[in-house]
Design a protein around this nucleic acid. Structure first.
Lengths: 202, 202
DNA sequence: GCTAGATTGGACCCGAAGGTCCACTTCTGT
DNA sequence: ACAGAAGTGGACCTTCGGGTCCAATCTAGC
C-alpha cells in the first residue's frame, strides 16, 4: 500500500516494476503473464498483489510511467540544448540510435494499446510525455531564433508539433517494418526543411 | 478451406470477416473474443473454425488484410491525383477527416501489435501497405515536378518517406491523445515545406 | 523479547476464452 | 432421387491466467 512502505518494501516494489519492464520489453504485453513477471523478479503472487492491489493493469500502468520517464531521459543531454544546427543533428543521431537499439519493441506503444482505454491514467501519462517532449523541441527552436538562425516569424509550436509527429511516425513505421529508414528520413527532412525555412526567410 | 468454396461459403466467410472487422473496430482486439464475433455475425463456433482452421490469429490476419485494403481506398480519388497544390490540400482534408471519423481506434495498429510478432504474414502485409502508400505520394511529388511546381533536384523518395512518416506520426499521436492537432500540423507543415522548397529553389 | 504490522510463500479458486466434436441440414451433380 | 460433400449448430473440453487466502517470517518500536 502507498505511504506506508519500509525501505525493504520500496526496494521490492522497485524490483517488481523494473523486472516487469524488462519482461514486457522482450516478450510484449500480450504474451506476458503475472507468472512470467513473478519468475523474472523472484517474487510471489502475493507480493505482486500486495504492492499493486488493483491488479495487473495497475502494475502495467506503473511500468508505463517508469518507461515514459526513461524516454526523455535517454535523449537528455542532447534534447536539452538544441541551440545550434550541430546540436539538432546530434540529437537526431541519439534518437535514431536509441530506437534502433530498442529494435521493434516500443514498450510504451504496446502498453498503451493494452491499457490505454481502460485505465484512465494511461492516456494522461502519454499526453504529458508528448507535451514535455514537444515543449523541449519548441525551446530548441526558440533557441535557434535567439541565435539568429531562424526568423522570428516562424510558428514555433506548429513546427515543434510537426517535428514531434515526424519522430513518432518514424518510430511507428520502424515498429511495423523493422527498418529505421523512415525515422531517419523524417528527422533529416524535418531539420533540413527547418534550415531551409531559415535561409529562405533570412 | 481454400479453393473449394461454394458461393454460399464465400458469402459466409465474407460476412465473418466484415463482421469481425466491425466488432474489432469498436471493442478493440484485446477485448474481442470469438464469442463476440460469433454473436455479431450470426454464426457458430464451428463456422469460424471451418473457414479459419488455423484459429483466431488467422481470422485476425484476414481482418487485417481487409482493413489494409480499405486504408488506401478511403483516400482514393484524392490520393490518386496529387498533381497540384490544391489536390494536395484536398488530400490532406480527406486524410484528416477519415481519421477524425475513425476516432481513437486504429484497427490496423491494434491488430498488428496483437498478431504482428506471431503471424509471419502480418508484417509483410503492413510493409506492403506502407510501400504502396509511399509510392502514391512519390508519384504525386513527381507530378508536381512535371508541372514545374517543384525542382527536379528534389529527392522524391526521401520527401515521400518523410511525408508518410508525418501522416503516421500524426495518426499515432491522435490515437494516444485523441486530438487531431498533430496530424493537421504535420500534414500542413509537410505540404508548406514542400511548397517552400519549390519557391526557394525556383 | 514481545507484539503489531509489514512482508513473503505458495496453494487454491474460478471464470473466460480458444479449440474440438459430432450430429444435423442443405446444396450439388449425376 | 440419392449419394456425398459442403455448410451449420451448439454442447463440451481444456488450459491458462488473474485474483484470493492464509499461514509463516521478518522488522521495528517499546
Amino acid at each position: 500500500m502507498p505511504g506506508e512502505l519500509t525501505p525493504k518494501g520500496r526496494a521490492t516494489r522497485a524490483r517488481i516494476v523494473e523486472g516487469a519492464a524488462e519482461v514486457l520489453r522482450d516478450r510484449g504485453v500480450a504474451l506476458t503473464t503475472l507468472d512470467d513477471i513473478r519468475l523474472h523478479t523472484g517474487t510471489s503472487k502475493s507480493q505482486l498483489f500486495h504492492y499493486f492491489p488493483a491488479g495487473k493493469d495497475a502494475l502495467l500502468l506503473a511500468v508505463a510511467q517508469y518507461e515514459a520517464d526513461r524516454v526523455l531521459d535517454d535523449q537528455m543531454p542532447e534534447l536539452g540544448c538544441l541551440d545550434s544546427w550541430e546540436a539538432w543533428h546530434r540529437w537526431r543521431d541519439v534518437v535514431v540510435e536509441r530506437y534502433e537499439a530498442q529494435g521493434d519493441h516500443c514498450p510504451l506503444s504496446t502498453l498503451f494499446l493494452q491499457i490505454g482505454r481502460q485505465e484512465p491514467g494511461a492516456r494522461a501519462l502519454v499526453v504529458e510525455l508528448l507535451r514535455k517532449w514537444q515543449e523541449r523541441l519548441a525551446v530548441g527552436i526558440r533557441a535557434l531564433q535567439g541565435n539568429g538562425l531562424l526568423p522570428t516569424s516562424l510558428d514555433v509550436d506548429r513546427a515543434a508539433a510537426a517535428m514531434l509527429a515526424a519522430v513518432q511516425g518514424g518510430v511507428s513505421i520502424m515498429l511495423s517494418t523493422g527498418s529505421s529508414a523512415h525515422l531517419r528520413a523524417a528527422l533529416d527532412w524535418g531539420i533540413v526543411q527547418l534550415r531551409a525555412a531559415g535561409q529562405f526567410a533570412a
